[in-house]
Amino acid sequence: MAMNRILMRLGRVYLGLILVFLYVPIMVMAAMSFNASEFYQLPIVFTTDWYARLWNNSAILDAAWNSIWIASVTTIIATALGTAAAIAFFRYDFRGKAILQVLLFPPIAIPWLITGTAMLIFFFAIGIGRGSRAVLLGHVALALPYVIVVVTARLRTFDPQLEEAARSLGASSWEVTRFVTLPWIAPGVTAGALFAFAVSFDQFVVSYFLSKPGDVTLPVLIYSAIRKGFTPEINAVSTIIIVFSMAMMVVVARYAKFGER
């Protein structure tokens, strides 16, 4: 029994070490964004100067604006199209359904480097070229499978007899969807939408290949800034991004209920 207790304690220490490994770099980065020294010198002298400077940096502001509107439009399109497809998979049986469902995995499983460069080649060939439109096209495609998978998971908990009951009471197909199905799957749709936003907002690889110089999203801007040599200003933007995306995932977790079955 004593042996067991020691093992339990060791396990907890181990878990603690993992959390240290996962979070310390992020905390160090955040701490440095409040450090007055441009060369990350220790000890830290507190300042919020780097954050104040962000407001006057038009390149960063433009990129932030790009990231936000692209992620928002991606969310709207991917959620609408993805929910429609998930409902169709749930309601109807048709030939080729299994194949269509399998086709959702390549966009998720193939490394973004391959998908991104393939998009670049194709969009160039058909005249779309690089730029925000191309980025948007790519982001929606990456987000769609996630939305379909998440909404489908929620639909598994939905009793199809409810739809039949509504229909037999004279509800039209649209009314069934609007007043019976959608309210039930709303948490799944919300989780899917948040996933879509996260996929787009954090997306670097595909944006990197598809965006035009001077018209970039935040991660692409950060990447080129890092390669030129870093400043605490990048720490400040990065800190904002990471706090924002983690807060969003806490919300997603509340909707999607990860780890519970």
Partner: peptide
């Protein structure tokens, strides 16, 4: 949640944090 949270945050930013 705490363990899988970083995995949903920006990977580029996390790599940058290691550079620091």
């Amino acid at each position: 949640l705490l363990v899988i949270l970083p995995f949903w945050s920006n990977s580029l930013v996390r790599i940058f944090s290691w550079a620091i």
